[in-house]
Every structure is written in structure tokens, then in C-alpha cells.
Design a protein around this nucleic acid. Structure first.
Length: 598
RNA sequence: GAGGGAGUAGCGAAGCUGGUUUAUCGCGCUGGCCUGUCACGCCGGAGACCGCGGGUUCGAGUCCCGUCUCUCUCGCCA
């Protein structure tokens, strides 16, 4: 197709270009027809420029102009001129100039739009996803995709300058029996055999360490066949990173420098040089989760002793086994929010989602405990109020549970809800490290220990003697990076010793034979002088989401899947031809529809 | 696997406790007018069996049951 190709973009013209003859290519963003004069806002990736078809236009030009509709793709040839006095639009970066059209070519027309191309598309998400190519024309999406590009570029620049190599690893690998469900790819050449898509390049990067590439990173696509959430979907992108000859603090320091650099580069935002470090146990006790939002101050307090002194039966029951806990927090008196029965009930349901049986509460009025469970604290008013630091008009919320973790997470949910409802959250970026995670957790259903993180993380030295006798109390050289209540990175110092690695497999119920069968290639590599190494993997989607103030990673992914793993645009996943199945030696065993009992 | 929310023209919404109506409004679409707009303005028009299927009722967008789709959360996600 022959057409007038652009000489400039729609974002770049200024009054310095006055008088210049230019060609613009772009989309009709808005069109205003005043009869004998037309205004066209022409849009491309770089911005919007006003095109004028003036009253002196010939018939051909004004006929073409009158045919234009939103989202027609056109080429405009014309001359830049200053806008007349009083017609300057300060809202637009190009608002001081306009292009007087001499020729307009319609490059393609546009059907009736399913939604308007605006700054932020207000259509339902499934419609946005079906017409994602149009949704992406909206300036909000354009900005976020651009931000993502600059985010990744800043990472590459930073790491390259520090001698890291970017190395690609396979996306079709062996399925390994840990973590999430794998996505499988059937093999045509080997009937009955499958590749798996990587949940992360974990083992490959450890092997690269064994190869001597002591500083590695990769912007890696990862796949996990689990249900989606606002902050995760079945395929996502990680900055995967690994280093040899390092200890935990080297990794943490590098990440602190990296994020300081990146935030300065793309947001001109100054992060602190060091991020706060919180032990997992303290995070649970104080914030009720392992990814605390530190943008507001409400903290949970140990209420075991005071609960034991109270006369409230539920507290005593929770503590009876010795494994339970009672935690309390103070909801600050806030203008515009009444701690009504209805609101307290809302808080209680938030707690119940995480297993709490109830939410105990009392208010501080005239320096005394009032309402709720206050009658069980007779004579303890001053003690309770001062130990929690509660003030006049504040409300004390208490959760008791026979399981420590459930007690904490339930009250943590209350804390989160208060943060939002009482508008306590500051607009800022609050990073912190969560360290000293337990290495194992006991899986009641399966009846054996499992790795909290993954089986390749190093136990902290002091626990190595008691590894097998007391797995539950072993802390690992594990670390999560948390930002504004989201886990944005997770990593560890890895095991590089065959015997220690075998021990960990055994604790996680893998026999030596099984371990050899599934992870033999790693164990084999560890026989040939593996270096001590460790790394981390920040989630790119999540970080860009938080930086761009969004609540769903869909807003920063060009073509995301919906909550059911379906792409409404291309319709995937979809059935395939019988021929394809035959080639792959597959027979589909459809699930039987359950007969409904009538 | 479980729970909460939603579904009304192409899009976004209103429609209270069942009953004045031809189901309302904004955007878009469409016909016309308009020489400085920039979310242009003005006049006119088309477009919805109120997700789908039953039921209750003299009467259902509204109440009940079922079902589908979407969305958030728990479980799950090292």
C-alpha cells in the first residue's frame, strides 16, 4: 500500500516546529465537526495532536474529513502552526500547536467499537480481554505497558553493569514432584512421555552456578497450574537471579541496590538504602501475615497473659493446649467511622474467613473498658489499656485460637481491613525483608514434612545437628521481599552438598532411590565441585502492578488469562484435532458429569 | 472443592418494599444543522423479549427454584 509515511509522531510537535511541513500517521481519537471546519485529535503511542481541516479546504479534503470516525487509521499531511490566541490547550503536551491538514488518507476504517478508547476503560473485564487489542489502545494500558518496559530495562542495565549474564534456560523441562501442579507438554517422539513447563528455572540456574556462571539472571516466564487471583495467574514473569560465593546478606544488599536504582530511574522515587528485616515469627505476631503492609502503623500485641487473667472462657480454651494464642490490636478512633455493631460484625467475618471462631472487642470510654467482652476484665482496665497503648475512643480487637498461626492470620485480616476502611494507608512504597522462615511444615493430610519454600534451601547452620530429630523448629536461609502487603520476591541460599540435599529429600519423604530418579541430574552436578550459591526471584508482574497503583496483574500484562485460565480473545484453551491427538498418542478421558440427585 | 458479589440496548449505569409508562439516563451509533473546538454544541432517529429455563401471582426487571457466564475471597499457589 502506498501512503504518506509519517515524518513525526503525535506526541512530539511543539511551537518550535511552527511552519514545518509534516506527515502524521495515527488513529482518529476524537473528531469535532463544526460544519465548515473540522478538528481531529490524532493519536499514536506518543501522544495526541490536533489536526485542523480549515474552511479553505478543497472539496476532496473536506469530504474525506467528514467521513472520518473514531479509530479510523489515517495519514495526515499538513503544516504545523501555532494555535490562535486563546485557543491554547494547556492540558495537552502539544496544546500550543496544531497541524493544518492539506491531505488526509484513510488507511483503514473501523467498525462500531465495543467500548470507547479512553484513559481508563470502564467496560467489564471479560469484554476488555476479548478486545484486548483495543483495550491496549487506552492510554492507561499504554502507560503501564511502557512502564513495564522501562522497569525491565532498568533491571537489565543495573545487572549488566554488575557483571551479570542474562542466560536463557529451557521452557520444556522435566516434571519435578514439588510445589505447584505442572503444565505438561506431551512428546510426539516418545509416546507416554511429557515435558513440563517450568514453575521457575530453579534447578537450571543452580546448574549454571555449577558451570561457573557466578552471576546469572533471566527475565523468565514461569508456569503454575493453580487457580488464579488478583495478584497471580497461571503464567507470569520473574526476574530470576542467582549468584555463587555469596551469603544471605549479599543477596539482600544487591536487591536493595537494585530496587533503589530502578525506583529512582523509573519513578524518581528514593527508597531507603536498607530495607527493614523482620523475622517470620515476628511478622506473624505483629502483623498476622508473612507479607505485612507497613504503610500503616496498627500492630498486633501478645495478649496471652492478660487473656489468661481474664474470666472469659473462650480465651482460656484457646490457651489450654499450650499451642494456642491470643492476640490483640487497637483500632484507632477515626473521624467518620463509627465502631457500630454492624461494622464490628464485618470485622468479625473478615477474621472468620481465616479460621477465627469470633472476634472479641471492647471500647475505651472515659478511660475504662466498655462493651463487648469488657465484663470479663473487671479491675484490669488500666492494665489492659496501658499494655496495648489504647486511647480514648479506640476499640480493642482480640482473637483467640487454639492454633497460633490461625490466631495471627485471623487478626491480621482484621488489621488489613482496618487499614483500608479507616484510610490509614499512606501513599508510599514500604519494602521489608521477611527472614528466618521455618524450613519445613508438617502436612497433616499426607502425614509427612514438606519444604515451606522448596527443597533446595539451606538450613541455618545452628539447626543442622537437629535437622532430622526436630524438623519443625529448623529455620532456613530463606528470605522474602515484601512491598505494601505483597510478596514481591522470594529466595534462599541453596544447598550445594550432596549429603545434606539427600537428608532434606528424606525428611520430605523422598527415598534415596526416588530422589535419585527425580533429581539425579542435580545431585550428580553436586559431585563435581559445586560452588556455594544463592539467589532470589522477584515477580515482575506484581512489582509493576504495585508501582502503577493497580490491584490486578492483568493491568500490566498485555494479554492475560481470566480467572479461569481462559483467554477470551483467542479462546484458549481449546480442543484440538483428532489428528494432533493421534500424533501425540493421547486419548482424552473426559470427566463424567455428576448425575444430580433429584 | 467452598463462600460473597454481579449479569438491564454496542458500553457504563438507574429502576425503592411486585402494579401509573411505550423500561429511564449518559456515552456510542444514525439523519440533519453549525467557522475555533478540544468530553464541542443544537434538533431528530434507531437500538433491550431486563443472562437463560422453570415457578408463585390477576400482574415479575423486581419474589422463589434451577442453570450459565463473569468477578472477588478461602482452599490451592515451594
Amino acid at each position: 500500500m502506498v501512503f504518506s509515511q509519517r515524518t513525526v509522531t503525535c506526541g512530539g510537535l511543539t511551537k518550535a516546529d511552527d511552519g514545518k511541513r509534516v506527515v502524521l500517521n495515527g488513529w482518529v481519537h476524537r473528531e469535532r465537526n463544526h460544519g465548515a471546519i473540522f478538528f481531529i485529535n490524532l493519536r499514536d503511542r506518543y501522544g495526541i495532536t490536533q489536526v485542523v481541516v480549515a474552511d479553505d479546504a478543497d472539496k476532496e479534503l473536506s469530504d474525506t474529513a467528514s467521513k472520518l470516525k473514531m479509530e479510523y487509521c489515517i495519514s495526515v499531511t499538513g503544516t504545523v502552526r501555532l494555535r490562535p490566541e486563546g485557543m491554547i490547550n494547556l492540558e495537552m503536551s502539544t496544546g500550543e500547536i496544531e497541524v493544518k491538514a492539506e491531505k488526509i488518507e484513510i488507511l483503514s476504517t473501523c467498525a462500531t467499537l465495543p467500548f470507547m478508547i479512553e484513559d481508563e476503560n470502564k467496560a467489564r473485564e471479560d469484554l476488555r480481554l476479548k478486545y484486548r487489542f483495543l483495550d491496549l489502545r487506552c492510554s492507561g494500558m499504554q502507560k503501564r505497558i511502557a512502564l513495564r518496559h522501562y522497569f525491565v530495562k532498568a533491571i537489565r542495565d543495573f545487572l549488566s553493569a554488575r557483571d551479570f549474564y542474562e542466560i536463557e534456560t529451557p521452557t520444556m523441562i522435566r516434571s519435578t514432584p514439588e510445589g505447584a501442579r505442572d503444565f505438561l507438554v506431551p512428546s510426539r517422539l516418545y509416546p507416554g512421555k511429557f515435558y513440563a513447563l517450568p514453575q521457575s528455572p530453579q534447578l537450571m540456574k543452580q546448574l549454571l552456578m555449577c558451570s561457573g556462571f557466578d552471576k546469572y539472571f533471566q527475565i523468565a516466564r514461569c508456569y503454575r497450574d493453580e487457580d488464579a487471583r488478583g495478584d497471580r495467574q497461571l503464567e507470569f514473569t520473574q526476574l530470576d537471579l542467582e549468584m555463587s560465593f555469596v551469603q544471605r546478606d549479599d543477596v539482600l544488599a544487591l536487591m536493595e541496590q537494585l530496587f533503589c536504582h530502578v525506583f529512582k530511574q523509573i519513578l524518581d522515587y528514593d527508597l531507603p538504602v536498607h530495607f527493614r528485616r523482620i523475622a517470620y515469627k515476628d511478622a506473624m505476631n505483629q502483623y498476622g501475615c508473612d507479607k505485612p503492609d507497613l504503610r500503616f502503623e496498627v500492630e498486633m500485641k501478645d495478649f496471652d497473659a492478660l487473656a489468661a487473667k481474664s474470666t472469659f472462657g473462650a480465651f482460656h480454651e484457646a490457651l489450654a493446649s499450650g499451642k494456642g494464642a491470643v492476640r490483640a490490636l487497637v483500632a484507632p478512633k477515626t473521624e467518620g467511622v463509627e465502631f457500630t455493631r454492624k461494622y464490628i460484625q464485618e470485622l468479625e467475618s473478615a477474621a472468620k474467613i481465616y479460621g477465627a471462631h469470633g472476634l472479641a472487642w471492647m471500647k475505651v470510654a472515659d478511660g475504662k473498658l466498655n462493651g463487648g467482652v469488657s465484663k470479663y476484665f473487671e479491675g484490669m482496665d488500666d492494665e489492659v489499656i496501658s499494655s496495648l497503648g489504647a486511647g480514648e475512643g479506640d476499640m480493642i480487637c482480640i482473637v483467640a485460637h487454639p492454633q497460633w498461626k490461625k490466631c495471627c492470620t485471623s487478626l491480621g485480616a482484621v488489621r488489613s481491613k482496618l487499614g483500608k476502611d479507616l484510610k490509614l494507608i499512606r501513599p508510599s512504597f514500604e519494602f521489608c525483608w521477611i527472614i528466618d522462615f521455618p524450613l519445613f511444615s508438617y502436612n497433616e493430610d499426607k502425614g509427612h514434612w514438606e519444604a515451606e519454600h522448596h527443597m533446595f534451601s539451606m538450613p541455618q547452620d545452628r539447626f543442622i545437628p537437629t535437622l532430622e530429630s526436630d524438623p519443625g523448629s529448623v529455620l532456613g536461609d530463606l528470605y522474602d521481599l515484601v512491598l505494601n502487603g505483597y510478596e514481591v520476591a522470594s529466595g534462599s541460599i541453596r544447598i550445594h552438598d550432596v549429603e545434606l540435599q539427600r537428608k532434606i529429600f528424606r525428611i520430605c519423604n523422598f527415598s534415596d532411590e526416588e530422589a535419585e530418579e527425580k533429581f539425579g541430574f542435580l545431585l550428580n552436578a553436586f559431585r563435581f565441585g559445586p560452588p556455594p550459591h544463592g539467589g532470589i526471584a522477584p515477580g515482575v508482574d506484581r512489582l509493576v502492578m504495585i508501582i502503577s497503583q493497580q490491584e490486578s496483574i492483568h493491568e500490566v500484562i498485555a494479554f492475560p488469562k481470566n480467572t479461569f485460565g481462559v483467554d477470551p480473545m483467542d479462546g484458549s484453551p481449546e480442543t484440538v484435532d483428532q489428528k494432533q491427538l493421534d500424533e501425540l498418542h493421547l486419548i482424552i478421558n473426559y470427566p463424567k458429569k455428576e448425575e444430580k440427585q433429584s
